[in-house]
Computed example of a mutant assay.
Amino acid sequence: MTTPAPAAGQLWQDNDPRSEGRLLLIESIGETHATVRQVALTPAGEPVPLPGVRQSRIRLDRFRPTSTGYRYTGQAR
Protein backbone atom coordinates (compact mmCIF):
# COMPACT_ATOMS: atom_id res chain seq x y z
CA MET A 1 0.00 0.00 0.00
CA THR A 2 1.27 3.46 -0.91
CA THR A 3 1.42 5.98 1.91
CA PRO A 4 -0.88 8.92 1.10
CA ALA A 5 -0.12 12.55 1.86
CA PRO A 6 -1.41 13.51 5.33
CA ALA A 7 -4.92 14.99 5.27
CA ALA A 8 -7.59 15.91 7.80
CA GLY A 9 -9.70 12.93 8.87
CA GLN A 10 -6.97 10.32 8.47
CA LEU A 11 -5.81 7.90 11.19
CA TRP A 12 -2.08 7.30 11.69
CA GLN A 13 -0.32 4.99 14.15
CA ASP A 14 2.92 5.86 15.95
CA ASN A 15 5.79 3.52 14.98
CA ASP A 16 7.91 4.32 18.05
CA PRO A 17 8.01 1.20 20.28
CA ARG A 18 7.78 3.45 23.37
CA SER A 19 4.34 4.59 22.15
CA GLU A 20 3.02 1.22 21.05
CA GLY A 21 -0.62 1.39 19.99
CA ARG A 22 -0.81 5.21 19.95
CA LEU A 23 -3.40 6.12 17.32
CA LEU A 24 -3.71 9.68 16.04
CA LEU A 25 -6.48 11.47 14.16
CA ILE A 26 -5.38 14.37 11.95
CA GLU A 27 -7.72 17.26 12.74
CA SER A 28 -6.17 19.88 10.46
CA ILE A 29 -3.21 20.44 8.16
CA GLY A 30 -1.07 23.57 8.02
CA GLU A 31 1.80 24.51 5.77
CA THR A 32 4.41 22.56 7.76
CA HIS A 33 2.53 20.80 10.60
CA ALA A 34 -0.54 18.68 11.24
CA THR A 35 -2.72 19.15 14.31
CA VAL A 36 -3.55 15.73 15.76
CA ARG A 37 -5.39 14.23 18.70
CA GLN A 38 -4.82 10.80 20.24
CA VAL A 39 -7.91 8.61 19.85
CA ALA A 40 -9.23 5.14 20.59
CA LEU A 41 -11.53 3.21 18.28
CA THR A 42 -15.01 2.10 19.32
CA PRO A 43 -16.10 -1.45 18.39
CA ALA A 44 -17.83 0.13 15.36
CA GLY A 45 -14.50 1.68 14.28
CA GLU A 46 -15.35 5.28 15.22
CA PRO A 47 -12.45 7.37 16.60
CA VAL A 48 -13.10 8.77 20.09
CA PRO A 49 -10.70 11.34 21.63
CA LEU A 50 -9.02 10.08 24.80
CA PRO A 51 -9.98 12.10 27.89
CA GLY A 52 -7.29 14.37 29.26
CA VAL A 53 -5.12 14.20 26.12
CA ARG A 54 -4.56 17.51 24.39
CA GLN A 55 -3.90 18.31 20.76
CA SER A 56 -0.37 18.05 19.39
CA ARG A 57 1.40 19.40 16.34
CA ILE A 58 3.59 17.11 14.25
CA ARG A 59 5.79 18.06 11.30
CA LEU A 60 4.35 16.77 8.04
CA ASP A 61 7.64 15.10 7.04
CA ARG A 62 7.29 12.69 10.00
CA PHE A 63 4.22 11.06 8.42
CA ARG A 64 6.14 8.21 6.80
CA PRO A 65 6.57 4.59 7.86
CA THR A 66 9.99 4.75 9.55
CA SER A 67 10.96 3.70 13.06
CA THR A 68 10.51 7.28 14.31
CA GLY A 69 7.57 8.18 12.07
CA TYR A 70 3.95 7.24 11.66
CA ARG A 71 2.12 4.75 9.44
CA TYR A 72 -1.18 5.36 7.70
CA THR A 73 -4.01 3.15 8.97
CA GLY A 74 -7.03 4.58 7.14
CA GLN A 75 -9.75 7.20 7.00
CA ALA A 76 -11.80 7.96 10.08
CA ARG A 77 -15.46 6.95 9.78
Rank of each mutant, 00 (worst) to 15 (best):
Y70I: 07
I26N: 02
Y72W: 15
F63G: 00
T66M: 08
T32Q: 10
R37H: 09
M1N: 11
I58F: 04
A34G: 07
L60N: 11
D61E: 13
F63D: 01
P43C: 11
P51I: 15
T2W: 03
E20I: 00
V53A: 10
L50H: 07
A44W: 13
R62Y: 03
G9P: 03
V48M: 09
R18L: 11
P47G: 04
V36A: 02
V36F: 00
P4H: 07
N15M: 10
P6S: 03
P43I: 11
E46W: 04
W12S: 05
G45P: 07
P43M: 09
G21A: 04
T66L: 08
E27W: 05
Y70K: 02
Y72F: 15
Q38T: 01
G74W: 01
S19K: 09
R57N: 15
A44Y: 14
R62V: 02
V39Q: 00
L25K: 03
R71H: 15
Q10G: 04
R59S: 09
R37T: 10
P51N: 15
P17T: 06
T66I: 12
E20W: 01
I26M: 06
P6V: 01
E27H: 06
T68Q: 10
L11H: 05
W12M: 10
V53Y: 14
D61F: 15
P17W: 01
S28K: 10
P65C: 08
R64F: 12
R59A: 14
R54N: 07
A8M: 11
D16T: 08
R64A: 14
P4F: 13
V39M: 00
R22H: 07
G69W: 05
E46M: 08
E20S: 00
V48H: 10
T2F: 02
D61N: 11
T66Q: 04
P47L: 00
T3R: 01
L50I: 15
T68P: 03
D16R: 10
I26A: 04
G21T: 00
R18M: 10
N15P: 12
Y72C: 11
Q13S: 09
